[in-house]
Design a protein around this nucleic acid. Structure first.
Lengths: 225, 225
DNA sequence: TGACAAGAAATTTTCGATAATTCTTGCGCG
DNA sequence: CGCGCAAGAATTATCGAAAATTTCTTGTCA
């Protein structure tokens, strides 16, 4: 909420706002986006809105078709399965590489980010940008940080976002998310113990959980009015 | 060259043009991009150019800083190493998954795309969009197509582009690229024979080659005037 | 009834100009 | 001689309207 206001450009702050609203489901999936509507809402001209939407489409949060405008990216069980699969595959290999090559600094950051995550209260009122989500992201990033490719870590981060969107949608539909803490602890422990197979199995199970939770909710192919 | 002109939007066709120029090195890395210059060159206003640049920045081909404009993404040995590493890791896991789960259709496409690649002449005059690059991309995509996540395949495709940029730059600097054909054949053969370890090793070696070629060229940290 | 075309309305894309910000240059001062 | 600073130049971000295109509506004809 800091740089959205001060030196940032209008397009940037609109981007941030819209991003949170899409992630948290305030903007319903598969909904057409009305340029004029957004312009009036933010009280700006087309340019900055357009720019923000362009950036969002690069993160697959909105889809764009030439001369036919933008729409909020749809959700589906198929896509969630695809995302989950991609997460399992990429996180597996990145985690293995990290465990194999990570040094003391890496291990320390894993520990630190885990404890931060424990201490962060789970405030899901402003979902998209909650403290907890931030801490959650940091933990998952820390696990992979020593894999040897910043690009790969960045990609896993993108997948985290994609999954987070589903998680938040499930949450607002009344899903319960048990105690992620103990799962995170187990993952953390196996990782610093350098038990690669175990850590990978736990991590993938952690990802699968989101998918399982949303399975029933998304079954009828998710049609909103 | 087809849809760049007809139904596409101005922004889209400028995007395509600029993309090719960046990939092929016509637009020098780490160069500041002058909005007005581009506007005059394409004879359009700011909006479409800005939009094109926004889309390019989502592919990491240009970098953007608020109120400070755009510049062509720099190149460096470090980044190439990062990309190569990411490619090896992601392609390894995706190829293993494909080999484990691919069906007859997948196998067929691997074969077909390989033969197309053989038959395509290596015309590097219009580098960014050459037939050969297209065929090359298709082959590498086919290898991974059965991994179970379209998203992951799409990401590998992005990495392909990132690496292609370096390849083309190396090419224009007088690099020679031996016979990739025989490498591709070996990869193809090992893949359809379902020899995962061998296929992965060959594929990673294939990626490493680009990096090795450019090592010397990029050593002095690539400063252009 | 249903397909289809013409025109109207709404929307997206692009334009040209303005406001806001950053970069540059040159001057004075320590 | 170098450093900070202010005025001017250059550049980016945003605006509001015009042009181009798609979508919706309605009326006609088989």
């Amino acid at each position: 909420m800091n740089k959205s206001e001060s030196t940032a450009t209008l397009a940037s702050s609109i981007f941030t706002t819209l991003r949170e609203e899409i992630l948290s489901g305030v903007l319903r999936p598969d909904t057409k986006i009305n340029l004029r509507g957004l312009c009036e809402r933010f009280d700006v001209a087309f340019s900055p809105v357009r720019e923000a939407l362009n950036r969002l489409s690069s993160q697959n949060l909105v889809s764009q078709t030439d001369r036919r405008g933008f729409k909020v990216a749809p959700i589906s069980l198929e896509e969630l399965s695809d995302i989950t699969r991609a997460r399992c595959l990429t996180n597996e290999i990145a985690l293995r590489a990290s465990i194999a090559e990570g040094d003391a600094d890496w291990e320390e950051e894993v520990l630190v980010s885990f404890h931060r995550l424990l201490r962060t209260p789970r405030d899901d009122r402003s979902p998209g940008a909650s403290e907890w989500t931030q801490a959650h992201r940091r933990f998952h990033t820390a696990l992979l940080a020593a894999c040897g490719s910043d690009r790969l870590v960045a990609y896993c981060d993108q997948l985290f976002d994609a999954a987070e969107r589903y998680r938040l949608i499930g949450l607002s539909a009344g899903g319960n998310w048990g105690d992620a803490d103990s799962e995170h602890r187990a993952i953390m422990q196996a990782t610093v113990d350098r038990k690669a197979d175990e850590a990978v199995a736990l991590l993938c199970a952690h990802f699968e959980k989101t998918r399982a939770q949303l399975r029933t909710l998304l079954q009828p192919s998710a049609r909103g009015p």
